[in-house]
Structure formats: C-alpha cells, structure tokens
Design a protein around this nucleic acid. Sequence first.
DNA 1: GGTTTAATTAGGAGATACCCTGAAAATTAT
DNA 2: ATAATTTTCAGGGTATCTCCTAATTAAACC
Lengths: 207, 207
Amino acid sequence: MRDDALEQIVYVVDDDIEFSESVRFLLTSVNLPVKLYHGAEEFLADIGPETKGCLLVDVRMPEMSGLQLQHILKEKNPDLPVIIMTAHGDIDMAVRAMKDGVLDFVQKPFNDQKLIDMLNKALKTNERASRQRQHKAALHDRLNLLTSREKEVLDLIVAGNTNKEIGYHLGISDKTVEVHRARIMEKTMVRSVQELMKLVFDIAPDR
Amino acid sequence: MRDDALEQIVYVVDDDIEFSESVRFLLTSVNLPVKLYHGAEEFLADIGPETKGCLLVDVRMPEMSGLQLQHILKEKNPDLPVIIMTAHGDIDMAVRAMKDGVLDFVQKPFNDQKLIDMLNKALKTNERASRQRQHKAALHDRLNLLTSREKEVLDLIVAGNTNKEIGYHLGISDKTVEVHRARIMEKTMVRSVQELMKLVFDIAPDR
DNA sequence: GGTTTAATTAGGAGATACCCTGAAAATTAT
DNA sequence: ATAATTTTCAGGGTATCTCCTAATTAAACC
C-alpha cells in the first residue's frame, strides 16, 4: 500500500519555486507532511483515488491552470479538498472556482497563520469526506453480494411490499420470495427490515 | 394570503435608483415580476418565510451591506436565493459570500442576458428549495401528531427493535407497544414499517 | 364535577415474517 | 462435461405483526 493512503499530505502545485519552498519550510515547522510539484501532470501522476490530504495550487501555471486541475482531480479523487491561490485573480474567476466546489480561493500573499488554518480545515474536510466515502463503499460492497434477482426483491421490499405481493409482481411463489429475502438479510448482515432500509438509504438517500 | 407566497418575484435592493429602474424596465419586458427597494430594512419588512422569488442586492449600501442582509435573510427565509452585485468588490469578499451560501456574486456592469439567465436560474433554485421545504414541513406535521410516548416507541421501532424488546426497554407490556405502534401508523398515515422509515429518514437523513 | 385525551393491559384471531429441511430446474463457471 | 451457483417450490413450526374488542388509570381540559 502507498503511504499516501495512510497519512494526510499537503500537496503543493506551483511553478513558483521560491514560494513553494517557503511553504514547505513553514509546514514542516508545524509538522505537516508536504510534497511539492512544479506542474499539474506531475502531481496527477503521483496520486490515486486513495490518496489523503489536500491540494494547494496556483491558478496560473504554464501548462494547466489550477481550475483545470481541479476539474480533473474531481474525477480522480473527489475527496481531496482544493485551495486555489492567485496573485492577480479576478472576481469572476473566484466565483467560478467556488461554484465548482473549491474549498477556498485566496490571494497571494497571505500570512502564515492563515495558511495553516486553511490547510488544517482542509485536512479535516478530507478526513470527513474520506470516511464518508469508505463507509459508502463498504455498504456498496455488501449490496453487490446480491444477485440481480435478489436486488429486484430488495427493491420491492424497500418499497413496502409483502412477500406475497412481491411474488405476484415477479410471477413467482411467495415461498421463493421468502428464500430471496433470507439470503438478502444474510448477505447484507442485517437483522431487521429496518437495518436493511438504513443500508439502502445510506447509499441512495433519494426516492 | 399574500400574493408573494404564490408568485415568484425578483426583489431588487439597491440605493442606486437609476440602476434599479433599468433593471425594472428590463425584467418587466421579459415578464418577470419585480419589486424595488432602496434599503435592506424596507425589503426585510416586506417579506416573510413564505415569500417566493429571489434577491438581487448590491453589497454596498448606506445602512446595511448586502452580506449582512444575506445573513439576516437566511434566518427569515432561507429559501430565497441571493445574488450579490458589486461595482468595486474584492476577491475575499466574493469568496466569503459564496461560502455563506450566496447563489452568485457578480460585478457591475453586466449585460442584460446574463442578468436574466442568472435570475431564471435563481428562481428555479427557489422553486426547488421551496418545494423541498414544504415537503419536509408536511412530514414534520405528521410526526408532530405523535405524543411523546409514541415518539419514544417510534425511535425504538426505527432502531429495529421488536415490540417485545421495546416493551422491555420502556418497562411496559408488549401489548401496550402494539397499541402505540398502531397509533403511530394511523397518525402518520403509513401502511408499512418501510414507509415509516422513509418518513423518518426524509426528515433526519443522519444516524 | 364531567369530559376528553393519553397511557396502560389483555385476549384472541388472522396474516405475515422467520427458520428449518428438502429438493429440483436453470444458468453459469471451470 | 462437470461443478457451482442461482432460482425455483413446498411443508411445517414458531415468532411477530396487525386488527379487533374491552377495560382501567391518570392527567388535562372545560
């Protein structure tokens, strides 16, 4: 396993080496793990969906802008909070970034304490998002143990049907439905319909 | 009933009368109902929690800023989307506003079509929020028909307990629990435990 | 004081869910 | 082709839920 899946790291992507190094110095002094990158590609190649931490990136870079990077990152690892920095940004850009789900958008230069506060907040956000995602993945895994038929039955159970109604609906005996029901409860490791409902709703809070 | 609870209105709060009038002219020409206010207090006094529409407000005003107004409005009517305008705003202000839940933050001047697009989007957002809120309120009303004891029983049902377990937990007979259960189903107008779970989870998606 | 509401308990009947054993046909995987 | 999985059906027993009637007690309301 990669170490970045266990420990939170502050990823700094900026072509301004002087700035990057000053951030590295600052974060190291407060015991925050940090990694520097000169370009977006370099960073993207180094992380995966399990990577934990947050991203501090400048909007203005040679090949890819911070906003573009954020878009790609959303696909690759939606849990990593993004803080965008700018030296000469405009309001429209800031607003667009915030709408795109950026955690923060700040102007260079900023004082050390503000940066540390922001990053700690970002890491907390990542912590939550990561937990939430793992939790959902675990639930998904449990539901994916079900066969397609069992999933059909599950939907009808969640909808509030009795075994008899489900059997009629699927054109099978209610005795068969009973078997499916038992397998569903067994595979998902729930002891009651209530727990089953919670499991389903934790994944799909809609309907 | 007030008419603003039925029809969506674009509320414009700006001390720049010339600008306001031009907005009124524009919106009227595309059949969007519009009301103008010179100050925040005037606007706040005129709306209630059932008011539908959206708010277009300048950040810079004599008595109360657009951001302050947005804060107060969140208490009074959280469903009204807010679009903040500024002539000379800075990035920090824009970011703060977005974090506070402002729908949009735009710089004056802007072209007519952009304004109309923004407002239509805001009205759609309000439409959704309003529906969602009414839906939740209706569910709340149904649950509030329950007595405190019935709510206790409800919680234990949702937790997955059987009548017998609930009775033991509350120190009462399972026969009594049976009665409570029946009343709960009757008052909330659900036909199955599944529907009951949906009702509860629609209100409190947590736990 | 009388009435209503809330909370409690009980018995019994029918429906449903839950659990077990047993088994066969259909599909899929190796 | 053989093995494993999936889907199907059934009987029987127990527990639980649902619905009915009936009744008592306590508190709140008029």
